[in-house]
Design a protein around this nucleic acid. Structure first.
Lengths: 247, 247
DNA sequence: TGACGGACTTCCGCTGGGCGGAAGCCAGGT
DNA sequence: ACCTGGCTTCCGCCCAGCGGAAGTCCGTCA
């Protein structure tokens, strides 16, 4: 009858912070306690300490939300500090040249993690926010990141290609050929593989070494056959990001 | 000889996270221990747990940096989720119309806290990053935020007006008149009050109620007398942010 | 080459901070 | 008036965490 060993305080604090996610950014104490698998009284004490430090705050309804201080610390992460800062001006220029959505993502395990997205007033719906993971096999950024990912990551991904639309690539062989093409051409395209009516064009972004650290993409909400013509512009932008990251 | 009571584990973990700031985004274990006022062995254990959760990472040099997971959680903070997301498109359009730096800030205590800044390739130097506090009395955003701040905040600020350039407003009376003017006109200007050769034009951004939640500004690196002509554009943008935040 | 210093990592036995059940509190609903 | 459900406070027991010390792994200097 092994009595469960009590988890460390640190891991409990982190469990509380981890209870917040894209779909649950506002939580009551009870929800928080459930999500972190803690007795309410314990959660209450820990959350109290987090609140005192402004790692969490309480909004108008008494629900807990992530606090400003945690946001401030988060902005110091390399993804935000280095990549995001280096890429915003280039993304800016790219948006102005194309007036299409511009986005940048890095790979995290077997997902693409959005770091930033730029768009004008036109595209009203907020499809994704920074920090949200998306599939590697059905997005432009994803295919680029996968094309330059270590073998074991590729293996894991190609074994598990979930269909999202009727155009999503789900056959192992076809995906491997697609990835080879991405490496050969230097860019990836998707046409309605992630959502009907959307297509994208993505290029790799190199780091200070020559490794691929991110992927930069244009995403349209209409099917544009002529999107390929922006490959040079994307590559110029990617190069400018690499240059800025060196600083 | 009261033996210092040992601080709680939670506060120690937070002290470690708090050791990271704008000027020290990369720390060695020893620096971390010093900053958090902990024995090295204790810091080591705690940091180990943080690392396991990806709240911190180790970069190439073995130094500790803020991890992706913490960044992800940070993006869920209301400032990032609501304000930043709501304002980016409007800031985008504003940039395109003016081609000047566009920035948005909120008030935090007696400082203005930058939330986002947009600029094209032209302005090479990264002057400030999101999450960095700036003075309330010498910036456009600051004066707007101060104009609508509670009395006690105003009191504290006007008693302590540090000169930054020779044009910085440092007299209590003059600042109070300036704030009244901001309330009357609906916008604030600065001309070389924060830095020589820079001026700014800022307007308030209202929240779902009618309270001022942020300030939106144009900042130029040259002295432009004609900046005022953008007041309507700024107000349109501010209104659009308010509208988006309601969602 | 050796030995020194600085930074990191591991170990282990003592102890007081944290745990959480229980009881109290406060709204809103019936 | 009485629930119900969520939040807050209390307190005594006990083991998780503490941190000094010893060990390891560099790089540097004589």
């Amino acid at each position: 009858m092994a009595a469960e060993p009590r988890p460390s305080v640190t891991s409990r604090v982190l469990a509380i912070l981890g209870a917040f996610d894209e779909h649950h950014p506002r939580l009551t104490l009870t929800e928080l306690a459930q999500a972190a698998d803690l007795p309410v009284s314990t959660a209450h004490r820990l959350v109290g300490e987090l609140q005192a430090w402004d790692a969490v705050e309480r909004d108008g309804d008494g629900r807990y939300v992530v606090g400003r201080r945690l946001w401030k610390v988060g902005t110091l992460a390399p993804v935000a500090r280095e990549l995001r800062e280096a890429s915003l001006p280039a993304m800016q220029d790219l948006y102005e040249a194309t007036h299409e959505n511009v986005q940048i993502a890095v790979r995290e395990g077997t997902s693409a993690l959005y770091v930033e997205r730029i768009h004008g007033t036109s595209s009203v719906p907020v499809l994704s926010r920074p920090g949200v993971p998306l599939p590697l096999h059905a997005t432009g950024v994803g295919k680029v990141l996968l094309a330059y990912a270590p073998r074991e990551v590729v293996e894991e991904c190609v074994e598990n290609l979930k269909p999202i639309t009727r155009y999503t690539i789900t056959e192992r062989g076809r995906m491997l050929r697609e990835l080879a093409a991405v490496r050969r051409l230097g860019y990836a395209r998707t046409v309605e593989e992630m959502g009907y009516g959307t297509c994208s064009l993505a290029v790799p972004v190199l780091g200070p070494g020559d490794e691929v650290v991110a992927s930069l993409a244009l995403v349209t909400r209409t099917v544009r056959k002529d999107l390929v013509k922006f490959v040079p512009a994307l590559q110029v932008a990617a190069a400018s990001i690499t240059r800025r990251m060196a600083l």
